[in-house]
Amino acid sequence: MRILVALDTNRYSQYVVNEVAKLAMNTWADVTLLGVESRKPASNGTQPPRNLPIVRKLQEFREEFLGYFKDESVSPYAIKRWGYELVDRGKGLLEEMCVCKGMKDFRVRIRFGQPTKQILTEAVEEQSDLIVVGCSKGEQCTWEQDRNAPEKIVKAAPCSVLVVKEEKKPTKIVCCLDHDSVSQESLELINQMVTLHQTDLALVGLTESEHLREEVDQKMKQILQYYTAQKIKAWVSVVDVSLLDKFIADTAEKGLIALWMGHKSLIGKFFSQDRVGKLVRSAQSSVLILR
C-alpha cells in the first residue's frame, strides 16, 4: 500500500502524522509526507527553502513519524541498503548519487502551487492507494491557502481518501456497502482502521424500497465471515437509500463513516458530490471514502 499524507502547518497535521504512523506500523506501507507551498522561493538565494515554515514543519513531522519506529531491526523504514542512482537535477542534468533506502519507501516532499491540484497530481504520479488529509473538526476547515482543500480532494481523488478530524476518536467504524465488487484492499484498510482505533465495526447494507439486493446480501455475508475469521466483531444492519442522509448525519456524530464510492456504487448516485463535501465539512469524526 502506498499512502500519501497531505500536511500543512496546522496542529491537526501533527495528529494526522501520528495516526498514519500507527497505520503504517500495521500495514508496512510506502509513505510520502507531502507539504504544499503556494510560491516557489526565489532562486537567487534570498529566501533559502529550508527557512520555509512548511519545510521546517515537515522535518518535525519526519522525526515524529520515524520516532514510532525506534527499533531499527524491525522498522520497515530503517536504512538497510544503499546504492548509486541517477537523479534528475533539472535543467538537463543527471547526476549519479548515493541513495539510502529502507525495506519500504519513506519520502518527504514539497510541491509548489495550488494545494488541491498539487496533492492530486502527486497521488496520480505516485499511484497512491490512499490519501490521508487532516481537517479541523468545526464547519470551517482551516487548511492553509485553501479552506476547502480536504473536501475538494475527497471529490476528485482517484483513490481512497481518509479525512482525519482533529483528535477525534471514533467509537465505531461504520462501513456502507451497496454493491458486490468490494476490493480486498478496501476490506483490509477497514480492518486496519478497526484495529487502530480498537472499535467495533458496523456493516451497513443499502436497501432500495426496503429490499436488499441479493448480491449485496451475499457480499455482506462474505465480508462478515472475513471479519469474523479476523476476530473482528462486526454488526450488520440495513438502511434504505431514502434515509441515507439522515443516517450519515446521525452516524457521523460519533463514528467513522466509510463510504464506498466506486463507479458501480449507488451511494455515488444517491449521495451527491455536494453531500460528500457537506459530510467532510460537518462530520465530527473522520471520514473514509473508499474507491
Binding site: 451497513v204 447494507g205 426496503e210 436488499l212 454488526w235 450488520v236 444492519s237 440495513v238 438502511v239 434504505d240 434515509l243 439522515k246 443516517f247
Partner: peptide
C-alpha cells in the same frame, strides 16, 4: 432480521 435504521420496520 437485519437491524434497520428505520425504527418503523
Amino acid at each position: 432480521i437485519l437491524a434497520s435504521f428505520d425504527e418503523g420496520d
